[in-house]
């Protein structure tokens, strides 16, 4: 069971602002789904390795050769706020 407090903590981890009353409904929704996920507990997984990549490929590398970058304008054109060639954001703390 995920509690309301946990929902708020996860909301912070995920940087999604959740207000008091929404936390309840999120908790309810999340618990329904988590309960469904719980059925995996039935499966015998001893000696089963996890599959992170479905195709068995290793060692994919790139040569150390320079390719074209974006222009400064292309880099910045989608931001809401910029200054002197920089992205501009609110202070951190």
């Amino acid at each position: 069971m995920i509690t309301k407090d946990e929902v708020e903590h996860v909301g912070w981890l995920a940087r999604i602002e959740i207000d008091e009353q929404d936390a309840d409904s999120y908790a309810a929704h999340l618990n329904t789904v988590l309960e469904y996920f719980g059925q995996l507990d039935e499966v015998d997984m001893e000696n089963v390795d996890p599959t992170y990549h479905v195709m068995d490929v290793v060692n994919v590398f790139r040569k150390d050769v320079v390719t074209e970058s974006l222009t400064q304008e292309e880099a910045l054109e989608n931001t809401k706020s910029r200054q002197d060639g920089h992205f501009k954001a609110p202070k951190i703390m």
Binding site: G11, W12, R15, E17, N78, T79, F87, P90
Partner: peptide, 20 residues
């Protein structure tokens, strides 16, 4: 920060949380 919607916030983390 770099594209799309941006909401106001007193610091970057609040801005990001509200935007999201």
């Amino acid at each position: 920060t770099r594209h799309g919607l941006r909401e106001e916030g007193e610091n970057w983390h609040v801005m990001a949380s509200r935007t999201r």
